[in-house]
């Protein structure tokens, strides 16, 4: 009667807990704290499940052997005692879990110092990421990538410009919704250098499945270096192909939605492309960023991400090549 697949299945995946988008592989304080209560819950609930199933198994075995005469011996007093003991056990167990949960919740809210402020705005179906600064000219704007310094708390202010989204980076922290009209703040304290993947976790329409966030945790120096590089305007186009691509960018519809600081393109309804080529993916995690993928994307974004708001812009193959040259030069 015990569900046999359950036991086999539980053993196998324990080998594969690690991952770039896994809550079972904490790489930050918040995820680790939640991992603690996960283990407590798993232990207590697992124990209660086993206890219940043992009782059930005993009842079945005993029932099979029961005879007519046994029917009269109802065992009410013993069962009554057992019931009250069971209630006490359950109350104790639930109280332990509730209190532990409350304490963990408080721990996650403990104030932090030297906080890095980040601002993430969710849109259908990409993320605008900003690192605000007191000097407005030094506010870093990028898209679909989040760089964080290790061993330092970052507070991510979450806003949305359309529907409800949810930012979830399982290796680092629990999720928090991006709700219109509210600013929610997600705290993250990464402890391990590496790359992780976040994903939108609130159904937001056609491309909810393709709204991922590339998260890089770096040393403080590497983070600062990245930030300085990204505050600089775009690399000017060097080769003939790149120059032609830059011209095409402002002649074609691209300029209506995208910004490339240092060029004439300054729109903000689409992702900022100033340092586009330094990203690992395109389309908010829809494809790894390569020349081929970019060419396919420019030809028809809908093939990769059906319903995406970027239209297919009419252009010849040669024009597409030049644009790819230009965009891939924007490191």
């Amino acid at each position: 009667m015990r569900p046999a697949p359950w036991i086999a299945v539980v053993a196998l995946p324990l080998a594969g807990c690690a991952g770039v988008q896994s809550a079972l592989d904490p790489a930050g304080d918040e995820a680790a704290t939640i991992g603690d209560i996960w283990h407590l819950m798993l232990g207590v609930c697992g124990f209660m499940f086993a206890l219940t199933m043992l009782f059930l198994a005993w009842a079945i075995v005993r029932g099979r052997r029961a005879r007519e005469a046994d029917a009269e011996a109802r065992h009410e007093p013993a069962l009554s005692l057992a019931l009250h003991g069971w209630i006490a056990l359950v109350v104790a167990g639930l109280a332990v879990l509730a209190i532990a949960s409350f304490l963990v919740d408080r721990r996650l809210l403990a104030p932090a110092t030297d906080v890095l402020r980040v601002r993430v705005t969710g849109m259908q179906w990409w993320w605008r990421v900003e690192y605000p600064s007191d000097d407005p000219g030094r506010t870093l704007v990028t898209a679909n990538e989040l760089h964080l310094p290790v061993d330092r708390t970052s507070e991510i202010e979450l806003r949305t410009e359309d529907v409800i989204h949810s930012l979830w980076i399982p290796n680092l922290a629990g999720k928090l919704d991006l709700v219109p009209g509210r600013v929610n703040t997600l705290r993250v304290t990464p402890r391990r250098i590496g790359g992780f993947r976040g994903q939108c976790a609130e159904f937001c329409g056609l491309d909810h499945a393709w709204m991922a966030l590339d998260v890089r945790v770096e040393s403080a120096d590497a983070f600062e270096a990245w930030r300085q590089r990204h505050l600089a305007p775009a690399k000017p186009p060097l080769s003939a192909g790149e120059r032609e691509g830059a011209q095409l960018f402002v002649q074609k519809p691209c300029v209506m939605c995208h910004a490339i600081r240092g060029s004439d393109a300054a729109a903000s309804t689409g992702p900022d492309l100033t340092h586009f080529a330094s990203r690992a993916t395109l389309g908010a995690g829809a494809r790894p960023l390569t020349r081929e993928a970019l060419a396919m994307w420019l030809a028809d974004p809908n093939r990769i991400k059906p319903g995406v708001h970027m239209p297919a812009v009419p252009m010849t193959a040669a024009e597409r090549d030049r644009l790819v040259d230009y965009l891939m030069s924007l490191e």
Binding site: Q251, K252, P253, V255, M256, P311, A312, V313, P314
Partner: peptide, 8 residues
Amino acid sequence: RDKIPDAE
């Protein structure tokens, strides 16, 4: 004409 695709 050149700034917004025709379908849009």
